[in-house]
C-alpha cells in the first residue's frame, strides 16, 4: 500500500537558489530500480561485453605489450595495466551511461517527465541516474579484477577495497557526464567531452604508464584529471601497498564528487524545471 508521503523529506520547487539534495532517498532508489530493471531485460546483450572486454584488453596489453615491458615501478606490467584498466572501464561505463543513456531517457523517451509527475523529484531522478551508472561502472571494473583473480594475479586482499573505490569514482565520473548532458542540445555535442575529456583522462591518468613518464611541464594535466587519484589509489590497493597518501587521494576524489554532484543536480533541474 502507499506509504505516507508526509513522512518523506518535504519537496518544493524553489525558483532560485542552490539545491542541496540528499542523494540517499527512497525516490533515488526507485529511479535506480527502474534503470536496473530495463538493463536486466537486456542482460543478454549488456552483461557479457565487459567480461569479454576485460579478457581481450588484459590479453592484448598483458601478453602483447607485456613482453616488451616487463616491469613498471617494480610491478609486472600486467598487474600495472590491470589496475589501470579497472578504472578505465569505470571511466567509459559511467561517462557513456550518463551521456547517451541519460540523454535518450531525458530527451527522446521522456522518461524523466513521466517520473517527475509522480512523488519522485527531479533531484532524485538525477541521483538515481548517477547511482545506476556508478553501479554499472563498478560491475564492469570488477570484471577485470575477477579475470585477474582467476589468473591468480591479485597479490593482496586489499583488492577487495577496489570495488568500493570504483563505486565512488563511478559516481564522480557519472556526475561529470550528467553536467555535460545537462548542457548539450544533441548527441553530436558529446564529441567535445569525449575527445577533450574522456580520452585524455584515459591516456594521461596513469592507466597505461606512470605519470612520471610525462615531461614535467605537462604533468599537471594528469594531476587535474579526476581519474588520476582513483587510478593511483586503486593501484595501491590492488597491490596491497597501503600508505598515508591513499587518504589524500580519497579526500580529493570525495571533494570533486561533492562539487560535480551538486553541479549535476542543479544544472539538470535548471534544464528540466521551467
Amino acid at each position: 500500500m502507499s506509504k505516507n508521503y508526509s513522512a518523506q523529506p518535504a519537496m518544493t520547487l524553489p525558483r532560485k537558489g542552490l539545491s542541496l539534495p540528499n542523494p540517499f532517498t527512497l525516490g533515488t532508489y526507485r529511479v535506480f530500480q527502474r534503470n536496473r530493471d530495463v538493463f536486466l531485460k537486456l542482460w543478454k546483450t549488456e552483461l557479457w561485453p565487459p567480461i569479454v572486454e576485460a579478457l581481450l584488453s588484459l590479453f592484448a596489453f598483458g601478453f602483447g605489450l607485456g613482453v616488451y615491458i616487463t616491469q613498471v615501478n617494480g610491478q609486472s606490467y600486467i598487474q600495472f595495466i590491470a589496475a589501470g584498466l579497472i578504472f578505465s572501464s569505470v571511466l567509459f561505463t559511467a561517462s557513456f551511461e550518463c551521456m547517451f543513456g541519460t540523454f535518450i531517457r531525458m530527451q527522446q523517451e521522456k522518461v524523466f517527465d513521466a517520473i517527475i509527475a509522480t512523488p519522485v523529484s527531479i533531484e532524485e531522478v538525477v541521483s538515481g541516474e548517477i547511482f545506476f551508472a556508478a553501479v554499472r561502472a563498478t560491475f564492469n571494473g570488477t570484471c577485470v579484477i575477477a579475470v585477474m583473480a582467476v589468473l591468480q594475479l591479485t597479490p593482496s586482499w586489499w583488492v577487495l577495497l577496489v570495488p568500493p573505490l570504483a563505486l565512488l569514482t563511478g559516481f564522480l565520473l557519472a556526475s561529470i557526464a550528467v553536467v555535460v548532458t545537462s548542457l548539450v542540445s544533441s548527441f553530436t555535442s558529446f564529441n567535445y567531452y569525449i575527445t577533450l575529456g574522456v580520452i585524455p583522462m584515459q591516456l594521461f591518468s596513469s592507466v597505461f604508464f606512470p605519470v612520471s613518464q610525462l615531461p614535467e611541464n605537462v604533468r599537471w594535466v594528469a594531476y587535474l584529471s579526476p581519474l588520476y587519484p582513483a587510478v593511483e589509489a586503486g593501484r595501491s590497493l590492488y597491490m596491497g601497498d597501503i600508505h598515508a597518501g591513499l587518504l589524500l587521494n580519497l579526500v580529493w576524489i570525495l571533494a570533486l564528487t561533492v562539487v560535480f554532484y551538486l553541479l549535476a543536480v542543479n544544472l539538470m533541474r535548471r534544464r528540466l524545471i521551467k
Binding site: S2, Y5, A10, T12, L13, P119
Partner: peptide, 14 residues
Amino acid sequence: ENIRLIKSQIGVVP
C-alpha cells in the same frame, strides 16, 4: 509547499 503530498494523490496524463 509539500508537493510530494499533491503528487501522490493526482494522476497525470501528459
